[in-house]
Design a protein around this nucleic acid. Structure first.
Length: 886
DNA sequence: ACGGGCTGCAA
DNA sequence: TATTGCAGCCCGT
């Protein structure tokens, strides 16, 4: 059972009703045609107002709320200055008619409102916010379009000023006021006293504008002090000030908000209890606000239970005084890429409490930081690597994480792997958390949300982790996957975190040079291509290229795609002899790929530290492999020399170090030999034979002497095909032979290695029976395709069943190798670092004096990861750059 | 601005 | 109509 302590966390929201009504009206009125109902009632101000209120209700985690209105035409201010607010245009009738609609709306919404005869809305707000601070409120939010209220800002009070429109808001705490106006909130009235305010018909000191006023306040702090020391001013300035002393003091007084208005209500009256749903819906219907109507209906259906208030930590002292214990935590990082992202805050949920600590406070609290770094406090988390790396960039360690919901659910079912928290927990029927998009928005509109909103989201996530943990662990145990989770994925996350954080150094100058060379070659190629084509066009557009080749130049169409002619490399290959333009295009394609993806792409991904910090996705692939993004360092060219040169730009981060690469030799075929128990292949591996040659001899029935490189190449293709669950068609495409020949090859192969044939049949049966296949380390892949009616889909399921255990076991083995190697490196206290994993190889940077040790340590550890019927073999190579480690 | 399609790079 | 990925570019919406 989870108990969340409900602290006396009160948040008061005060709204300047008149100000927002004006904003709402004019924001939609400038176009000329005002929104109205079919019966002719003007509703544009109401509409804007509702929009505004919806945003307020979403954003501020309020417990109490009030909307203040101005009442009569005369206020106490008119006693001092009769001309106050003279010269204002009268309120348009179209707006006036909406005042009562807005008031009715607020009543139905359940929000208190107040207007007083001789006071303005500002004064009501000023009085309430002042009282609230002494009365058990932790936070006061004031929402207005009027900058006067900025004078109320203090450590507990934030003023939100509407900018253009109604929902675009600028928030001011003390620092923000200072940043924008260069004065403290208290000085806002002095500023106004000096500058005046034309909209209230306050003159101030004529000739003094914002700039001068700020300058004077920097020197004299207040109007009174300025008045007392006018002798320190010179020339015209002194004349201007002295001539208007009284006016300045009066204007300041006029602008000063009255904080002791007698009020006919208590805070209890302001408690927000929610809307009168039925009546509000009827009202929206009457106003023809269909979008709002729909919104209520949606909220009604999904929110049957009200949200509990949440606790947001307000000071570092509060954090220092907490007692810490095993908890679920969530580190909220804004931005998909956590290397560049900002930590907004950290939520903590345990048996007794649930709270959210804004990161600015959290990082200053010693008690909280030692909670994070202490491994005796056990933490549950979602995506530990993300949290850990983000904290590493802040120089903060995170230890003691023994449960990662992302990794656990990924193991239970790899299709669950998603960084979208809600999607993951939905698989476990958990519904108590929003989509990331609902919190931050999407696309161009994506932005950091209000702290209350973020806090809610973060606490919801931590709560879900806390609640789901035992259920998920139990399921892992039942399925025999606990060890895979605890001994493989969890420790691997820490290894990966360090790799990502360390990053890999780039030789940017080298990259730049290669780029220049490529660019000039591309320019030359482009003009040759245009010349050959007799026209210029976009070579990068398959559509335009297709038209040039197959219409303008009338070359034979080899293949079509869904949308037109295929112009891929295979097609171009076949057209090579038809026209001299083809080889130019092929070269153009190769070079422009290198230029845009690898030269420009890598440059863009390079950080200020001269390194690329990739992110390994540990919970994505269906087979258990890792993937790599921003940049993808698992597909850097190697096969063609021109592309391979890119690798010269990957260098050690320190002078005199080397890049060391170690890769498993034929790991997938070894695994296949092991699982299928194919004696002759096992023997061949034991003896260290060339396995493709061996396959060629067995399948094509030739002796060692009769072996040709062509036969070996064919055998290699068959071996690859076997791993992927090939078809005759696939092999024929690959080897450019007929399907009939391909079929013959495959039959021969399966006859020769009957164990493999048996394995292929058994694994498909097993998959159909269980619904999933497993790797040697109990990783699962579910294959629902096998139950489908569609033949092609079922075929795909069968290939998946054959391939997943092989690819997956290989992934398991290298993951374990990474953990073992990292532990060995810590034991030996080497400086060398693991940088990358590329599916069957590990890349390190090593100081020269550790080279020998590392070669021995790495290859030995990789080979000893697991004992199979075949030996594992790791090869290595090294050099000054990744290019040389071949 | 987003997303689908095509293309090509890796193991 | 061979497995697993990521990303750039084009182009329609």
């Amino acid at each position: 059972m989870l108990w969340i302590r409900i602290d006396a966390m009160n948040t008061l929201v005060l709204i300047d009703g008149n100000s927002l009504m004006y904003r709402a009206y004019y924001a939609t009125a400038y176009s000329g045609n005002l929104m109205k109902t079919s019966t002719g009632i003007f509703t544009n101000a109401l509409y804007g107002f509702v929009n505004m209120m919806n945003k307020v209700l979403d954003d501020y985690n309020h417990t109490h709320m009030l909307v203040a209105f101005d009442a009569g035409k005369t206020t106490f201010r008119h006693e001092f200055l009769e001309s106050y607010k003279d010269g204002r245009k009268p309120m348009p009738d179209e707006m006036r008619s909406q005042i009562n609609l807005i008031k009715k709306y607020l009543d139905l919404l359940g929000v208190k409102r107040l207007e007083l005869a001789t006071y303005e809305a500002d004064d009501i707000i000023g009085t309430l916010s002042t009282q609230a601070k002494g009365d058990n409120f932790d936070k006061v939010h004031i929402i207005t379009g009027d900058k006067d209220l900025l004078q109320m800002v203090d450590e507990k009070t934030i003023v939100h000023i509407t900018r253009k429109g109604v929902t675009d808001i600028e928030s001011f705490d003390e620092a923000a006021v200072f940043a924008k106006y260069e004065v403290s909130p208290q000085q806002i009235v002095d500023l106004k006293g000096l500058m005046g305010d034309p909209s209230d018909n306050l003159p101030g000191i004529p000739g003094v504008g914002e700039k001068t006023a700020i300058k004077l306040l920097k020197q004299f702090t207040t109007v009174e002090n300025l008045v007392a020391h006018t002798d320190e001013l010179k020339g015209k300035m002194r004349e201007k000030v002295e001539a208007n002393v009284e006016q300045a003091i009066l204007c300041k007084r006029m602008a000063t908000i009255h904080k002791e208005v007698p009020l006919p209500l208590t805070f209890d009256d302001l408690r927000y209890e929610g809307p009168h749903v039925e009546e509000l819906m009827a009202f929206f219907k009457e106003m023809e606000f269909n979008a709002f109507l729909k919104k209520i209906k949606m909220e009604e259906s999904k929110e049957s239970k009200p949200q509990l208030p949440i606790r947001i930590i307000q000071s570092e002292q509060e954090l220092d005084q907490l007692t810490y214990q095993d908890s679920a935590i969530h580190v909220e990082v804004f931005e998909e890429n956590y290397h560049r992202g900002t930590i907004l805050g950290i939520a903590v949920v345990n048996q007794e409490e649930a709270y959210y600590a804004p990161f600015e406070l959290a990082k200053k609290s010693e008690a909280f930081l030692s909670f994070l770094s202490c491994s005796t406090y056990k933490k549950s988390i979602f995506d530990v690597k993300r949290s850990r790396v983000a904290l590493m960039w802040e120089g903060l360690p995170l230890e003691g994480v023994d449960f990662d919901l992302l990794l656990a659910t990924y193991i239970l079912n790899p299709t669950n792997g998603s960084r979208e928290f809600k999607k993951v927990v939905m698989h476990y029927d958990y519904d108590g958390v929003s989509y990331d998009e609902e919190v931050y928005g999407k696309g161009a509109k994506r932005a950091v949300a209000a702290p209350e909103k973020v806090a809610r989201y973060a606490i919801d996530i931590a709560t879900a982790v806390f609640k789901l943990k035992n259920q998920i662990l139990e399921q892992l145990r039942e399925q025999g996957q606990l060890e895979l989770f605890e001994e493989m994925e969890m420790p691997l996350a820490d290894v990966l975190a360090t790799m990502e954080f360390n990053g890999m150094a780039l030789d940017l100058n080298g990259l730049e040079e290669m780029g220049e060379t490529l660019k000039s070659r591309l320019v030359a190629l482009e003009s040759s291509i245009f010349e050959q084509a007799g026209m210029s066009f976009n070579i990068n557009s398959p559509k335009q290229l297709g038209e040039v080749l197959f219409e303008k130049l009338s070359l034979p169409v080899i293949k079509k795609t869904k949308t037109g002619y295929s112009t891929n490399a295979d097609v171009l290959e076949k057209l090579c002899d038809e026209h001299p333009i083809i080889h130019l295009i092929m070269e153009y394609r190769t070079l422009s790929k290198l230029y845009s993806t690898y030269i420009e792409g890598l440059k863009k991904a390079c950080y200020d530290d001269g390194k690329v910090h990739t992110i390994f996705n540990q919970a994505l692939t269906q087979t258990g492999r890792l993937s790599s993004v921003e940049p993808n360092l698992q597909n850097i060219p190697i096969r063609l020399e021109e592309g391979r040169m890119i690798r010269k730009a990957f260098v050690p981060s320190q002078e005199g170090w080397l890049i060391l690469g170690a890769d498993y030799s034929q790991i997938e075929l070894r695994i296949l030999a092991h699982i299928s128990n194919t004696e002759s292949l096992i023997e061949a591996f034991k003896q260290g034979d060339d396995i493709h040659k061996k396959t060629a001899m067995d399948v094509f029935k030739v002796s060692e002497e009769e072996m040709t490189s062509d036969l070996r190449r064919s055998a290699k293709a068959i071996n690859f095909g076997i791993i992927y669950g090939m078809s005759a068609f696939g092999l024929s495409e690959n080897l450019n032979i007929t399907q009939k020949e391909a079929k013959k090859y495959i039959d021969h192969y399966l006859e020769t290695y009957s164990g493999i044939h048996q394995y292929m049949e058994d694994i498909v049966k097993e998959a159909k029976y269980n619904g999933y296949v497993s790797t040697l380390f109990n990783r699962r892949r579910y294959i629902p395709e096998l139950t489908q009616k569609n033949y092609a889909i079922r075929q795909f399921g069968e290939r998946t069943a054959m391939n997943a255990p092989i690819q997956g076991t290989a992934a398991d083995i290298i993951k374990k190798a990474m953990i073992d190697v990292s532990r060995m490196m810590q034991e030996k206290k080497v400086q060398s670092r693991l940088l990358l994993q590329v599916h069957d190889e590990l890349i390190f940077e090593v100081p020269e004096n550790e080279l020998e040790l590392m070669i021995e340590l790495v290859t030995k550890t990789m080979e000893d990861v697991v004992e199979l019927k075949v030996p594992l073999k790791a090869d290595y190579s090294y050099g000054p750059t990744w290019y040389d480690a071949k």
